[in-house]
Design a protein around this nucleic acid. Sequence first.
DNA 1: CTCGGCCTTGCAACCGATTGCAAAATATAG
DNA 2: CTATATTTTGCAATCGGTTGCAAGGCCGAG
Lengths: 332, 332
Amino acid sequence: MSVTLKDVAALAGVSRSAVSRTFTEGASVSAKTRSKVEKAAKELGYSPNALASSLTTGRTKLIGLISNNFHNPIFLEVFDQFTRALQERGLRPLIVNLTDETEPANSVRMLRQYSVDAAIVASSTLPPSFAKAFHDAGVPVVHTFGRSATSPEVHVVGIDNVECGRMAARELLARGYRRVGYLGGPKDATSAMDRYRGFMEEVEKHPELDVSYSFAGAYSFEAGRTEMLRLLAGAPADGYFCGDDILSVGALSALRDHGLKPGKDIGIIGLNDMEMSRWENIDLTTIHQPIKQIITSSVDLVEEMLKDPKRYPEARIFPCRVIERGTLRPRP
Amino acid sequence: MSVTLKDVAALAGVSRSAVSRTFTEGASVSAKTRSKVEKAAKELGYSPNALASSLTTGRTKLIGLISNNFHNPIFLEVFDQFTRALQERGLRPLIVNLTDETEPANSVRMLRQYSVDAAIVASSTLPPSFAKAFHDAGVPVVHTFGRSATSPEVHVVGIDNVECGRMAARELLARGYRRVGYLGGPKDATSAMDRYRGFMEEVEKHPELDVSYSFAGAYSFEAGRTEMLRLLAGAPADGYFCGDDILSVGALSALRDHGLKPGKDIGIIGLNDMEMSRWENIDLTTIHQPIKQIITSSVDLVEEMLKDPKRYPEARIFPCRVIERGTLRPRP
DNA sequence: CTCGGCCTTGCAACCGATTGCAAAATATAG
DNA sequence: CTATATTTTGCAATCGGTTGCAAGGCCGAG
C-alpha cells in the first residue's frame, strides 16, 4: 500500500541507505543525492515509518500518559497542557484511562508492548507504588501531582500538599474562622492525606479552635456535595478547606440547598484554581496550583530522562498561592 | 535490553515461529509446545512487541484521536468515553491536540508515520474537509460530531444540528417567548451554522416574532459572556438559544452582571447537557446530546472499518431531547 | 503393519527501516 | 599528475516479529 524507502530509492536511483540517511539528522549525504531523494520522496508522497525505524533505533517518541481524573474539570487544563507540551517536542501521547482500575501491571505491560520511551503518571490519587511499577519495569517515569517523599526512585513534579494544608488553615484563621473543618478527597489519595496533615499541624497550634475533618469518597462534585450535606445535617464548622475545587463546588451546591450563603454563613476555600472557579456564578476562593509550570516541567524532565535514563531522581515542587474570590469572608 | 521472541524460543527449546504462534490467536500449536512456551515466557517476563508485529501484520491497533475542543467541559465526557471505548476493544488512542491549527496536512502525515489503523476526528468546529483529508490519504476515518451532508465520503456520527435548532426555537415559542435570539458558536463551525438554519427556519414560520441572531468567537465561556454583554448593551431578546452549554454559562454570567435573573428576566436554552449544567448553581435548561451513544457508535464504526476498509460511508444520527431545568420560564 | 490425511513444526523470506564497514568517489596536498 | 585524506555510498546484517511452505510426526483406517 503505502510508499516505502525502497520505492523512493528506486525512483531516485540510489540505495535504500541513501534514502534513510537523507531523512536522519546529521547523516552523511551529499547535496546531490539529498536533492534527488527529496524530489523522489515528494513525488511519491513518502514519509518514513516511525514504527519501523523504532525497531532499530529503540526510540518510538511515544509517551504513555496515564490518568484516572477524567471527570475533574482540572483535567481539561492538565490534558491540554500535556498534549501541547509533548507535541511541541515531537513526542506523542499514548493515553491510558484507568478510571476503573488501579493495578499497574496491565498498564505497564501494555505500554511496554508499545515500546513507549517513557511514561507520565498524572494523578494525585494513584499511590506512589503505581509509578514505581514503571520504574521497576525499566520504563522511565515521571509522577506528576505525586507525593515526593515516599517514592525516592521516581521523579515527582507537583506541589507541597502539606504546605497547602497549612496555607489553607492560616487563611481561614486570618479571616477569623474559629470553627474550622477539612473536607478532603479520598483517604487513599496521598494528596488528601498530605493536605490533611498540613491543615491539622497548623490548626493544632491553636488549642482554642474547634476542629473537624472528614474525607469525601472521590474528587468529584457528587462526593463533595454528599459529604457537605452530611456535615450540614450535624453541627457544621463555619470555615472549610475543601481539598479540591470540584469538591468545593459540590459543597457550595449543598450550602445552597440549605439556603446558606458561601462567604457569609459558611466559608469555603478550595485548591486547584480550575478555570470554572473564576466563573462569576462560582467565584471560588482557592489555592492556585501552577498547572502549566508543573506540566511543562514534567515534560522537560521526561525529555532529560530520554537523554540520560539513569538520571538521579528528583522532586520538583512548585509554590502555590491563595486566590481571593467570594467564598471566604474578607480579612478583618 | 528487553526480552524477545528469540530468548523465549531458546529457553523453551522451540523455534521462534512456535513462540510467535502461541501468542497469535488461532494459530496451530500443540498443547505441549504451547505450555512449554508459556512457561518460558512467564519466566522471562516476555510480552510481544506490538510495533514489531505491526510491521508484518499491517495493524497497529493505534487510533488517532483528533480534537480541538480541549477547553470545553463537554470534552471531559467525550474524552473519557472515547478512551474507555477504545481500550475496551484493545485499541489505543494516540492523541492530536490541534488547538492552534486547522491545517490537516501535518496531522495526516504524523498519524501515517505512526501507522494508525484509523482516525477519529472529534470536533464540531473542524470543517468536513479536515476529515476528508484522512480519507484521501487512505486512512479510515470517522468524523464524530460532524456534519453529515457535505462529506459523503466520510463516516459521520452525531446529531442533527438543524433539527436541534428547530427544537430550541419550538421550545422558546411554547414557553411564550416572543423576542427570540440565537447566540451561536463560531461562524465557521458547521454546528453553529446548522443550528442557526434550523432555528431560523422555525421562527420564520411566525412573522410576528422579533428575531435576532449573532455568533460568538468560539465555543467558550469567555466568548459567550462577551457576546451576551454586547447584546445586553443594546436591546436584548427575552429568550435565547445559545448554541452550546459553555456559551450558555458565559451568557448566564453576563446576565448576572446586569442583575438579570435567568428564567425570569431572560430565558436561556443551551445544547449538550454537559455534567455541569446539572449543578444547582448553574441549573441550565438545555438540549441533551447523547454523548455516550455517539461515542460508542463511533468506535463501533471504527472497528467495522478495520474489518472492511471499503465500507460504504454512512451517517449515524442520534436524536436529542430537551432537559428542563431552571433557565427557561415554565410552559404556560 | 502400512497407508493416507491432518496437525505441528522449523526454515527462510519478509515487513520498513538503520547502521557498521569497506569500497568508491571526491577533495586536498605535494 | 600522483599520493593521501576525507567524504559519500552501497552492501548486508539487524531490529522483533509473522507467515507460506514443505518436511516431519501422529492419527485412525484398512
